[in-house]
Computed example of a mutant assay.
Amino acid sequence: MAGGMRYTTSTAGQVSIKVFLIRNCQWSMNLIEAWVIMGPQTPYYERWARKQNSLLKDKQISNPDDQSGLIYLLITQKERWAHKNYVENDYYLHRYWLATVDDLDSTTKRYMEIEREVDMLRRRHAEKVNQFYGTMREQHVDREVAVLTRRHAEKVSQFYGAMREHYLKDKDYWKDYLRRPFLTHFSGCQPCSGQHSPAFTWEACWKGMQRALNFADNQVLSRFGFVHPDLLNSTFVSPLQFNFPA
């Protein structure tokens, strides 16, 4: 789950479930069963509305929803559910596509620069050891984030003073934009109905989806020595030279 706060206070907005990852096991099924009985398809819907509204004082919508239902469980049945629920408040889980797709080329470039410096990350490997290599890559990305954040803070300090520098450090401004989010959401594109938002064209949506999908595809293909050199061309895959990008 994505959220900026721990579920320790009775506030409806403390946890966002826009991104909800769940393990396929019996414990998860038990959680879903306890959660789903608060939904509008059950005869207890109005009763749950009264209970949630009495606990979550800042709830803006009177009827129960999936977010307030989960928060209610985590607060009122903390001993049963809280110890196996983790609220992510550090990693950039999701981001709007317009703010993401244009940065994918520079993200690829940053990854390649890291691999040039760390020869072990250039090794082709089996899926079984993905976690090991992923952890190693994250450590080097963290170092790059720290360096670039410090450089940006120095520039900010020169131009805007110590107050602006402090603000950017607190907000982790650069940390969000130096990583690709776990999920890129294409809200407003409506590819099935074709009734996309007038703020952008259908072609922009389609090209954005192609770029995002091929970028993700490259993360898998590169382990086996292949790559989409053009993120807008899904049909063409080229082999990578051994030890690329040394």
Rank of each mutant, 00 (worst) to 15 (best):
N53G: 00
V237C: 07
K207W: 01
K84C: 05
G225W: 04
E127P: 02
F224L: 09
T108E: 14
R47K: 12
V156N: 02
G13R: 07
Q219E: 14
W202C: 00
L232H: 04
W81F: 15
R164F: 05
E144L: 14
T107K: 14
C189Q: 02
T149V: 11
D103G: 04
M136D: 03
I37F: 03
L70H: 11
L232A: 01
V118C: 12
D102T: 10
L93N: 04
L74Q: 01
Y72G: 04
S222P: 04
S54K: 05
G208Y: 00
H83K: 13
L213H: 06
I114M: 07
E127I: 12
P245E: 05
V145L: 08
G194A: 06
G39S: 15
T201K: 08
K51E: 14
N30V: 02
F186M: 06
P245Q: 04
Y177K: 09
K57Q: 11
E113D: 15
S238Y: 10
Q195S: 07
A49W: 03
F215L: 04
Q60H: 07
S157V: 00
E144S: 01
N30L: 07
F242A: 11
P43R: 09
K84Q: 11
V227A: 02
K169S: 03
C192G: 05
M120V: 15
R124H: 13
S187K: 10
E203P: 00
Y44T: 14
